[in-house]
Design a protein around this nucleic acid. Structure first.
Lengths: 113, 113
DNA sequence: CTGTATCCGCACAGATACTG
DNA sequence: CAGTATCTGTGCGGATACAG
């Protein structure tokens, strides 16, 4: 992570850029999710990528991980305050994506809850 | 570019994702820019990347290119209506980047106009 | 259920040189 | 001024198998 940028948007993309990070954040914005729920909502991402991104988002202070010591394991992910501060960005992305899909005929497949 | 997504944010990232595309769009959001102006405002991007991204944004209908037949050459880039529809996304990214810089101590270097 | 561990390909990205 | 052309590499992302 660099610390000198020539435009605030560069910094934002450094934190929430990449294929899956904003998608994870958008789901967590809707509430606490277990690991398996995230997997079901993002059927295209590999386990490796999902875990990797979650760890990075944790390290960046946007997401927190909560492990219940049960069997079977139960792990929840949620946004931190810093993560919630991204809500306007995520919402704008979500809204634009919906409209763009309408205009271009792309399909949004409803994810299972 | 895929046409089936499981979340609108995936679609948005497919279009404005990547390191430089949103930065280009954020600059053009402020008005028409010549090629050289974009270069000065984005000193870290290579010419190859800048041109490549501009061509892609053109192909996606977000940016239009206007060439004045003069010597020396004079090429302007501007947002299309579709590109302007991204304003809320770009603005939210810009605002969040500024705040995040304040919180983390990252430096935003003012670009020359 | 919630992850690790490996292997692999390639698209993205940087550097440099050159051109109408 | 506004690009092309070419070479090179590396890290992102995917697939698969395995583990506590």
């Amino acid at each position: 992570m660099a610390s000198r940028y020539h435009c605030p948007v560069e910094l934002t993309m450094d934190v929430v850029g990449g294929k899956w990070r904003p998608v994870i954040l958008a789901h967590l914005k809707e509430g606490v999710h277990r690991y398996g729920e995230l997997r079901r909502r993002m059927p295209e991402v590999s386990e490796k990528m999902l875990v990797q991104r979650l760890r990075e988002l944790e390290a960046d202070g946007l997401v927190s991980r909560h492990e219940r010591d049960t069997n079977p394991p139960w792990v929840e992910y949620r946004l931190t305050d810093e993560g919630r501060s991204l809500a306007p960005v995520l919402q704008a992305m979500y809204d634009w994506g919906l409209e763009r899909a309408r205009r271009t005929g792309a399909t949004i497949i409803d994810p299972p809850t």
